[in-house]
Structures are given as structure tokens and as C-alpha cells.
Design a protein around this nucleic acid. Structure first.
Length: 508
RNA sequence: GGGCCGGUAGCUCAGUUGGCAGAGCAGCGGACUUUUAAUCCGAAGGUCGCAGGUUCGAUUCCUGCCCGGCCUACCA
């Protein structure tokens, strides 16, 4: 049996395509060509639109171009046929005519299908109905498509297919293409923004012996040669701080992080986080930096400073609010709390608000939990929430004038955490005490508590300069900029439960 | 993990108070040399998510399972 036969099933549409393919092969025509013209000689639809903007309806340009792409529509009119061609820059119309191509080649062109990838050469013209068109003089089938594309008018709507077969989503939905274009622009602009300010991009380990820098459960893997378990990083933080010890003053990493936790509209097991460390700066410097960066990046990617979150319009150029966590609880939840309150009293308030209290929860944890539940969703306009409890901030510098709190803030936009930053804790003895506190939580069964990283403490003992650090969720920033409700809309290949058959394919 | 909603032709969707499964588009055959959701004529196309149960008969009712979406909980 021909090996090409084994993978396509019985559907009639698929059989028709297979028959066309077989016919091409039997006639000695290669349905998968190696090359059309020199790639640099290919014109693109957006460039042609600009170049021939002045061409009038019905006019010929007298100039020859070559374009290549996927056939998206075919409109046949006897001796003339229109095709819509999609390339990476957009769409352009092709016109195939029998009197230009000759009878045989014109007949060949009618065997092309929607979905096929073709290269054509011809004269640029504008049709009577004012559509910029390539009047095809020669063409080649470059890749035969064996599967029908989704419907041309309604497109591809099924979210499951859009996520599982993103290539189809990209072919069919201009909106999807523009979201991922924006994502690329955002990441590019983040680099430019930081590079312009003297920051250096580095790459630190993804495989870590001790997964540190955040509170989360890690993925575990195994190194065979060393015969040790390693963890996929949950954050690059502790390595970037080692860079500060090593003498880097401004450093950042665009870090793919992995967290072995739930999947939701705001959580993907792997996600992209920017982390920035700035020596001799503190959290107030980081506030300025992150506000400027978010505003700059969104304007660059989107063209303006206006974003929309669940129907609410937000102008990033308007002043951002600043409020401490305790003040916010007073203002938005009418709760007057303090870190000196008895744990039992705070527990009672938490329980009244349907918060499940784990063993070992102290006042700081309870206050932060109440804040997250009662205040966060209300912070739609960009807001800096300042002064997080030390209990939930084991890597942040304590706040001198308010014991129990740290010099830490988060940026809330549209009710979601976009960034998290603090003045870094540089004191190795205090850091050890904080780690030991985390170990006590671990002993109580809280898996997400930080692990003690002895090598990191050693680095701190050599001396780390005072510094501000920042983490920013790149996926969430993209969601904000593009108005996407789900993180899956901004990740090219979001994680999905495998379908029946996917595993089998992998094992065979 | 819990709740709600969904899975019917390649795609977008109807439908069956339990009795031969429907449309549009795509595809196939035909007509048509400036259309752009082209138009016109013709013939096709289905494991109704999967597995059980009830029934003379299940795509429809019941149970379980799989997959997805939204909300919710944990987390960023």
C-alpha cells in the first residue's frame, strides 16, 4: 500500500482530494515543489497594495510580479476565474484567464483547490470593480492541500479546534493573526524599552535543582546521567539575584515559567514572565519603571493608550492610583484591620468571607487573602497596591516603619494582577530566617511554600547590592492590550487535555 | 474539585413531544471571460461524542464515561 494512503480516512471530500493528488503524481507532476522563485523576489500583498494604490479601476500596470500563498476562495466564470490568495501580510486577488494561459494550463488551474499553496507570476492590474489583481501569466502548484478548510463565511468558531489546531485558526481568523502579531510587538518593545535603559538580557536555568522564587508546585523531571530529579523553574528570581551578586546592575529575563497547578482562563501551565532587577533602586523606582513600561509597550503594540476590560474603558495615561493593602481593605471592603490583631479574630473575619484557612495561617496571610478576595476584583483602573505582609513575601525587604510588612507592590489593572515588585531582601541572615519560616509551612503540608536554597544564601553572604525587582505577566499584559478574556487566546498552543488517539500516536 | 451549558455532514448551525436525519457554505458533475458570501442547473455526502440501560424501535429518554466552553475554588 502506498504510504500516503494510510493516514486519511473515508470522507468523500478527502477522497476527492486524494484522487486529484494521485492524478498529479501519475502524470509525473510533483505536488510538493522544492521552490518557486528566489524568496526575496516574492512580492507580498500588503506591499503591492501600497505600491499600486494609484492604479485606477480597469487599468493595467505593465509590471510583472510574483506572489505565493494559500488559495482561500475560488470564483469560476467560464473562461476566467478569480482566486483569493492569502500570504503572511494579507489577501490579494488573482485572475486566471483562458486566453492568457492557454487552454491546457487554464484547465490545470481549475484543478486547484481552496487550501492549496500556489506561486503565480503575472501583471498587476486593477479589476473593473476596483480590486487590485494579479493577472496570472504562469503559476505553479507548490503544495497540494488534502483537507478542506473551514467554511469561508462563518469561518472557524469552535474554540476547541481553534486551540488544538491553531494553524487553522491562523489561516481562517484575521483577529487571531492580529493578536499574535501584537504579542510579538509587545515582547519586542519590552526588550527595546529595557535595552534603551541599560538593562541586559540574560538566560538562566530552566532546569533547577531547587525550584525557587515563587509559591507554586513545580513540574519534576529526571536527569539520567546525574541520576537526580530536577524541576522546571517556577520563576527565575533567585538566579537573577545571583547575577546582581555577580556585578550585573540592570538585568532582565523573559522567562518561560512552569507551574504544576490548575488551568483556567487566566492560568496556563507554562507562561511567560518578565523579571527585571535593578541595583541601587528600590520599589518606588520600580513603580515608575513598570508604569512607564506598560504604557509605552501598549501604545507601541496598539497605537493608543486605551484598553478595554470587560466593557470598561481604561486610559493608561491617566494617573495610576496608589494605596496600601490595609487602606484598600478599609476603602473597598470597609474592614479596619491591622497586623497586630489576634489571629483568631482575623480567622473569624476570613471565615465570614468564605475563606478556607490552612494550618499555620498567620495574620499576614489572612489579611492578604481578604484583600485578594474582597478588593482585587474592584481595582479596575490601574492601581499600585503597596505594602504586602512579610508572611507572604519571603524574598522582599521589610518595611522599616511598619513591622510585618514589606516594601512590595502589585499592579492591578482590570481587577487582575499584572505585575509584582519589591525592594529585594539583601540581608542573608534575615533571608535565612524567612526561608526557615517557609520550611515550617512546608512541614505543615503546604507544598507551595518556598524551599530553602542554600547556594542562594551563600551568594547573599558575599553581598548583594540594594536592588528593586519586578515580575510582569507577559501573557496577561497581552490579554489586556488585545482585550482577550482567556489566556488561551494569547498563547499559540495552549495546553489541552490530549484527545483519544493523540497518546497512541506518540507511543507508536 | 464543584456548578451550568455544549458535542448532529469538512465548516456554521437547525431538528427529532421516541418512528427513513435537515439547511447554507465547502466538495463532486455541468453552464458562464471582471467576480469578490459570484450566479444558475444536477447528483451526492452522516458511527447524531463514546459505552451501557429502558423500549417493538433511541440521534431523541435514563445512567456512566470522554472532550470542550463559561462560572467557581487553588494559583500569577
Amino acid at each position: 500500500m502506498d504510504e500516503r494512503e494510510s493516514f486519511l480516512e473515508e470522507s468523500k471530500t478527502l477522497k476527492d482530494r486524494r484522487n486529484k493528488l494521485d492524478k498529479l503524481v501519475s502524470e509525473g507532476r510533483e505536488p510538493y515543489k522544492s521552490k518557486f522563485v528566489e524568496p526575496d523576489e516574492l512580492a507580498h500583498s500588503d506591499g503591492l497594495c501600497k505600491r499600486y494604490a494609484d492604479l485606477g479601476a480597469g487599468e493595467l500596470s505593465g509590471e510583472r510580479v510574483s506572489v505565493a500563498g494559500r488559495i482561500m476562495a475560488i470564483r469560476e466564470h467560464g473562461g476566467a476565474t478569480f482566486f483569493d490568495l492569502l500570504d503572511s501580510s494579507g489577501r490579494i486577488q488573482l485572475l486566471f484567464r483562458e486566453n492568457i494561459l492557454g487552454r491546457d494550463r487554464y484547465r490545470d488551474s481549475l484543478n486547484l483547490d481552496v487550501g492549496d499553496i500556489v506561486g503565480v507570476t503575472g501583471e498587476m492590474m486593477r479589476s473593473k470593480r476596483s480590486e487590485l489583481t494579479v493577472s496570472v501569466e504562469s503559476f505553479e502548484l507548490l503544495s497540494k492541500s488534502l483537507r478542506p478548510l473551514p467554511e469561508k463565511w462563518h469561518g472557524l468558531k469552535d474554540k476547541e479546534i481553534r486551540y488544538r489546531q491553531r494553524y487553522l485558526d491562523l489561516i481562517m481568523n484575521e483577529e487571531t493573526r492580529s493578536v499574535f502579531k501584537a504579542r510579538t510587538e509587545i515582547i519586542k518593545r519590552i526588550r527595546e524599552f529595557l535595552d534603551e535603559r541599560g538593562f541586559t538580557e540574560v538566560e538562566t536555568p530552566i532546569l533547577q535543582l531547587i525550584p525557587g522564587g515563587a509559591s507554586a508546585r513545580p513540574f519534576v523531571t529526571h536527569h539520567n546521567a546525574l541520576d537526580i530529579d530536577l524541576y522546571l523553574r517556577i520563576a527565575p528570581e533567585l538566579y537573577l539575584k545571583r547575577m546582581l551578586v555577580g556585578g550585573y546592575e540592570r538585568v532582565y529575563e523573559l522567562s518561560r515559567n512552569f507551574r504544576n497547578e490548575g488551568i483556567s482562563t487566566r492560568h496556563n501551565p507554562e507562561f511567560t514572565m518578565l523579571e527585571v532587577y535593578w541595583a541601587y533602586a528600590d520599589y518606588s523606582d520600580m513603580m515608575r519603571l513598570v508604569r512607564e513600561m506598560i504604557t509605552d509597550v501598549v501604545i507601541y503594540a496598539k497605537g493608543d493608550s486605551l484598553i478595554e476590560v470587560s466593557g470598561e474603558k481604561i486610559d493608561l495615561l491617566k494617573p495610576w492610583e496608589e494605596i496600601t493593602m490595609l487602606e484598600s481593605l478599609s476603602k473597598y471592603a470597609n474592614l479596619e484591620l491591622s497586623i497586630e490583631m489576634e489571629t483568631s479574630e482575623l480567622c473569624m473575619i476570613a471565615e465570614q468571607n468564605d475563606i478556607l484557612i490552612p494550618q499555620g495561617a498567620g495574620p499576614g496571610w489572612l489579611i492578604a487573602e481578604l484583600y485578594e478576595k474582597l478588593v482585587e476584583p474592584k481595582l479596575v483602573h490601574p492601581t499600585f497596591v503597596l505594602d504586602y505582609p512579610e508572611e507572604i513575601s519571603p524574598l522582599a525587604r521589610g518595611k522599616a516603619d511598619s513591622p510585618g510588612f514589606t516594601e512590595r507592590f502589585e499592579v492591578l489593572i482590570g481587577g487582575h494582577e499584572i505585575a509584582n515588585a519589591f525592594s529585594e531582601l539583601a540581608d542573608p541572615l534575615e533571608q535565612r530566617r524567612r526561608f526557615e519560616e517557609q520550611l515550617r509551612k512546608r512541614a505543615l503540608g503546604i507544598e507551595e511554600a518556598h524551599a530553602l536554597d542554600e547556594d542562594f544564601l551563600t551568594a547573599l553572604e558575599y553581598g548583594m547590592p540594594p536592588a528593586g525587582g519586578l515580575g510582569l505577566g507577559v501573557d496577561r499584559l497581552t490579554m489586556l492590550a488585545c482585550g482577550c478574556a482567556s489566556i488561551r487566546d494569547v498563547i499559540l498552543f495552549p495546553h489541552m487535555r490530549p484527545q483519544e488517539g493523540e497518546r497512541r500516536g506518540r507511543e507508536s
